[in-house]
Amino acid sequence: MAVIELADVSRAFTVTSRSGWRRTRREVRAVDGMTFSVEPGEVMGYIGPNGAGKSTTIKMLTGILVPSGGTIRVAGVDPSRHRLKLARRIGVVFGQRTTLWWDLPLKDSFAVLQKMYDVPLARHRENLATFVELLDLRDLLDVPVRQLSLGQRMRGDIAAALLHDPEIVYLDEPTIGLDVISKARLREFLAQVNAERRTTIILTTHDLDDIEALCTRVMVIDHGHQIFDGTLDGLKSSQSAPRTLVVDLAATLPPIQVTGATVIKTDGPRQHLTFPTNTSAAPLLAEIAANYPLVDLSVSEPTIESVITQLYNTA
């Protein structure tokens, strides 16, 4: 039984532009014909360039925005119609801004959330203790939210979003602006929450390391359309982003001739060749070794960045 189901969901915005006295209205489809479902316990990375429709989708899944077409069911209900009811079962983190109370110490915000969501006090204490420990919040509890650093605030926001044991958590760019260590710590925490509580997590990000570290599933969207839905490995192999072979020769030579590969760069005795993802490197190596003075070599897989860049370009 899927916890999130979208069927042919669209969302149009009217954009008014002015030039002089004339106003022109134009309809922009931020999300167009989106259909997918998410199973309980899945961690889905939702990626796409700026303006692809990621946040719009998240807002529709929380009930903040009403879709212009199609149907959405989250935890069995229509989000925009049963927004208040659904709110108890989902957690939301907007990376760009806090949902906590700016002037209140973190612990007061947490106390209010406990009452707002009617979390049994024992359960609340238990959760709070866990999150304080895992997210290292102990020294921050008495600090007003406005005085927290970005990374500290984000940890506070994430704890706040999870205190009421939501079944589903939406994280809209949770690692934006964080340093490497904070990012790693956050990912570790989210992985643990997902593993222990079977919380379904949907996260949008521009940081593909988030996807590598956390997501069992990736969805790529562009211009409101799904352009990929599957596993990370599937994403890599779906695209014929070329693999790279770097060979070190005994001498500086003109670009070498190999069947099935092309030299893209020469750097003294070092030459860089590319070859398609779906072919084996072995015959290439044999051919090079037979014809050229080969000293050393290395093969590199396409980076996820290059895969996605290619996906955007072909879409």
Binding site: K59, T62, G63, R83, A87, V92, F94, T99
Partner: peptide, 14 residues
């Protein structure tokens, strides 16, 4: 304008 209104809409309180 600042987007803070969205935070109201994710809470189980009107």
């Amino acid at each position: 304008r600042t987007g803070a209104f969205d935070a109201y809409l994710i809470r189980p309180v009107p």
